[in-house]
């Protein structure tokens, strides 16, 4: 049953340098599994949009190869693009189009014969059926986003790209969007979304990739990232500095700050024993005088900020 499936998208050594000389992608290697939800997390300008635009054919890769469903995106663009639907970040819709017309147009554009019943079905799935004859510019932002999704789904793609699907969207709509993504996944669609909301990645993704400054810093199952998320820190401030850690603390996962005033102990909240009592006893036995105690939970946000930060310092 669990035979490893070939990745539905495979990216090798992808770089992109724009004409102005700015290198936005600096060697991306990425395999996307069939049927997964992958969240690409990263600050603005990290290269997320360039990455998905390249896969969709809007941007030419400078070097590297991308295959979708085993086909090369440049040589076999007709095959690869049929497999892919793209929902752009901006609410880009023609001004005077009627909802149903613009979705039918998308279907035709991707080479499928007209099927009004199928288009109505897609509109229905997105709760747009009652808006089918509305002019798109008169719809609210959330509705426009759904029209864009309907357009992207009109040719029944196997892969859906959502570029910042919930940017500037209120909480309720965001939850609706998440439910929709889940529904799509159940229908077998592979979903890649970019976001800078960590909460969003946590909520819906199977895997999370962190992109910063054109590099993929980390990509892992969400659960693995969550495990490192479960880490907590106990910070012990000392009254007087010490040169090195006392031997009684050797068995603990502790670090001493450079100035010698602070000991940081990292522990797993999910474990049965946190080890705080033993640690504090050991501190006491070593004759250290405490000034302050502090515990903090490292969030995915911290991990993310740290990753991005340390990357920028490189």
């Amino acid at each position: 049953m669990n035979l490893p499936q070939p990745p539905i998208i495979s990216i090798r050594n992808l770089t992109k340098t724009y004409a102005a000389g700015e290198q936005v992608l600096k060697g991306i290697d990425l395999d996307i599994k069939q049927g997964e939800i992958l969240a690409l997390l990263g600050p603005n300008g990290a290269g997320k949009t360039t990455l998905i635009s390249t896969i969709c054919g809007l941007v030419r890769p400078t070097t590297g190869t991308i295959t979708v469903g085993g086909h090369d995106i440049v040589k076999d663009y007709r095959q690869t693009r049929k497999l892919v639907g793209l929902v752009p970040q901006e609410l880009t819709l023609g001004a005077f189009d009627v909802v149903v017309d613009t979705v039918r147009f998308s279907r035709g554009l991707f080479g499928l014969p007209p099927d009004h019943a199928r288009v109505d079905e897609i509109l229905n799935d997105l709760s747009l059926l009652d808006k089918k004859d509305s002019i798109v510019t008169r719809l609210s932002g959330g509705m426009k986003r759904r029209v864009l999704i309907a357009k992207a789904l009109a040719h029944e793609p196997k892969i859906l790209f959502l570029d910042e699907p919930t940017a500037g969207v209120d909480v309720e709509l965001r939850k609706e969007m998440w439910a929709l993504v889940e529904k799509l996944r159940l229908s077998g669609v592979t979903i890649i979304l970019t976001t800078h909301y960590i909460e969003e990645a946590e909520e819906i993704a199977d895997r999370v990739g962190v992109i910063s400054d054109g590099r993929l810093l980390v990509i892992d199952e969400k659960q693995n990232l969550m495990n490192s998320l479960g880490k907590k820190q106990l910070v012990v401030d000392l009254r007087s500095p010490i040169e090195q850690l006392p031997e009684s603390l050797a068995g603990f996962d502790v670090e001493l700050s450079e100035d010698g005033y602070r000991i940081t102990y990292t522990f797993d909240t999910q474990g049965d024993r946190t080890g705080i009592t033993t640690l504090l006893q050991a501190v006491n036995n070593a004759g250290l005088v405490l000034k302050d105690l502090n515990t903090s939970q490292s969030s995915l946000e911290d991990i993310f900020v740290n990753l991005v930060h340390s990357d920028n310092e490189r």
């Binding site: 969709c56 054919g57 809007l58 663009y77 007709r78 095959q79 693009r81 049929k82 892919v84 793209l86 752009p88 901006e90 880009t92 819709l93 023609g94 001004a95 998308s106 554009l109 991707f110 080479g111 357009k151």
Partner: peptide, 12 residues
Amino acid sequence: TGSIYEIMSAPV
């Protein structure tokens, strides 16, 4: 309007 993205990403 930016909606040209669709044609650019279509198999045409």
